[in-house]
Structure formats: structure tokens, C-alpha cells
Amino acid sequence: MLGLSANYCLKCGDALENRDIDGTFRKACPSCDFIFWGDYSIGVGALVIKDGKFLLVKRAHNPGKGYWTNPGGYIEQLESIEDTIVREVEEEAGIKAKVRSVVAIRDLPRSVHNLYIAFAMDYLEGIPSPDGIESDEAGFYSIEETESMNVAPFTKWLIHLAYNGKTEGLLKDTNPFVPLDDHVLFRIL
């Protein structure tokens, strides 16, 4: 972990040093309590189904330019994952949808460790329209139609999972038995 990109403390600005923290060398500040735990990103993706067809967008830029994928993106620092995926679906495809459940999680350890959470979403309204920035085409497509499209492998896996899944996934817990303010919880119901 010594090759991480942080060199200065995000709290006080001092140069970070390498320090053994619970058996792992991490960058830490010698002047305050700041520890650089690593570079992480959290992505979200939507599986919106309408009339047996999946919402897909054609990527207009990299990563994945030219591939058909489910709409999605990265969360902002102070944005919940639920708000992120609702926003991303509307931005990339012009569709309003609401979260129903979490259907998959992908863990991709690399220099910026990526966690991706895929949501099953209920279609509310709208006609698919690309934003012209992140997507240059958008529409609802059947499984048969996707067979002749340039669908990204991970999206193929998600579609298969959503179409053939035997459970509804982790559903939003709107009334937890223990009050947890500011938490958005998903669980097996």
C-alpha cells in the first residue's frame, strides 16, 4: 500500500509518513490523527425493466465507449447511493425510476478500489433519450434484441441476473426495528 497517491495530510497539510497501522503500512500524519485509508470509488447501476425490456444506454465516452450498458455512475461525497442512481438514470436516459432493491455488488480491487452496487428499479415515467454527453443512444431492449447489440460483458451478467434471479435481492428497510437516523438500509425481508 505504500504506492498510494496521497502525500500530504488532508486535515493539516503536513507530509504523510508510512506507519504500521494494525499490521498494514498506511500513510499517516505525524502531526494529527489523519490516516489515508486508500483510494476508493463507489459506482451504482440501474436495472430498469419496462414491459419485459431492459433500459440500456450506449456509452458516448470511455470507459466503455460504444458499448451498451445499464445506466449508472459514481456517487458524490454527500449524496446517498439511492439519490445517485435515481439521478444517473434520469441524466443518462431521461427516465424517472425509483429504487426497489439491491440485486448485485461487484468488488474490483485495483489502484482505485471500486465497489459497484446494482439496483433493480421500478419505471415511473419518461421516454428514453440520451444526454449526448455520457450516452448517445438510449432505449428499452428485450433479451433477444441485446443478443445482436454490443452489450458490455458486465451488463450482460447483470441482465442475466435480473432476468433469471430467484429472489428480489436486498429490499429497502423503511422501518428498521432499531431507529438509525441518516441511514439508508437494505436487507433481506
Rank of each mutant, 00 (worst) to 15 (best):
M1P: 09
L2E: 14
L2F: 12
G3S: 15
L4W: 14
L4N: 12
S5H: 13
A6I: 07
N7S: 15
Y8L: 06
C9W: 04
K11A: 11
C12G: 12
G13F: 15
L16W: 02
L16C: 06
I21Q: 08
I21V: 11
D22P: 06
T24Y: 13
F25L: 12
C29W: 00
P30L: 05
C32A: 08
F34N: 07
F34M: 07
F34H: 05
I35A: 04
F36P: 01
W37R: 11
G38C: 02
D39N: 15
D39I: 10
Y40V: 14
Y40T: 12
S41C: 07
I42A: 10
G43M: 06
G45Q: 09
A46E: 06
V48K: 02
I49S: 14
I49W: 10
D51M: 08
G52H: 03
K53A: 01
F54N: 05
L55F: 04
L55G: 00
V57T: 09
V57Q: 01
K58W: 03
R59T: 10
A60Q: 09
H61F: 12
H61T: 13
G64W: 10
Y67A: 07
Y67M: 07
W68C: 03
W68D: 01
T69R: 08
N70P: 06
N70V: 12
I75Y: 03
I75C: 10
E76M: 10
L78M: 12
L78K: 11
L78F: 13
S80N: 14
I81T: 11
D83P: 05
V86Y: 05
V86E: 10
E88L: 03
V89T: 07
E90F: 11
E92T: 01
I95L: 04
I95G: 03
K98R: 15
K98C: 14
V99I: 08
V99Y: 05
V99W: 01
R100E: 12
S101K: 00
V102D: 01
A104R: 02
A104C: 04
I105M: 07
R106L: 13
D107Y: 09
D107S: 14
D107H: 13
L108M: 11
P109F: 14
L115S: 10
L115V: 14
I117Y: 00
M121V: 01
M121W: 04
E125Y: 11
I127Q: 14
G132S: 10
I133S: 15
I133Q: 11
I133N: 13
E134K: 14
S135R: 02
D136L: 02
D136N: 12
E137I: 06
F140E: 04
I143D: 07
E145Y: 01
T146M: 06
E147F: 12
S148R: 14
M149V: 03
N150D: 08
N150S: 12
V151D: 00
V151Y: 04
K156R: 15
W157T: 13
I159Y: 00
I159S: 02
H160A: 08
L161C: 05
N164C: 02
G165A: 08
E168G: 10
L170E: 00
L170G: 03
L170Q: 01
K172M: 14
D173H: 04
D173M: 07
T174S: 13
T174D: 08
N175L: 12
P176M: 08
P176D: 04
H183C: 10
V184Q: 10
R187K: 13
I188E: 00
L189N: 08
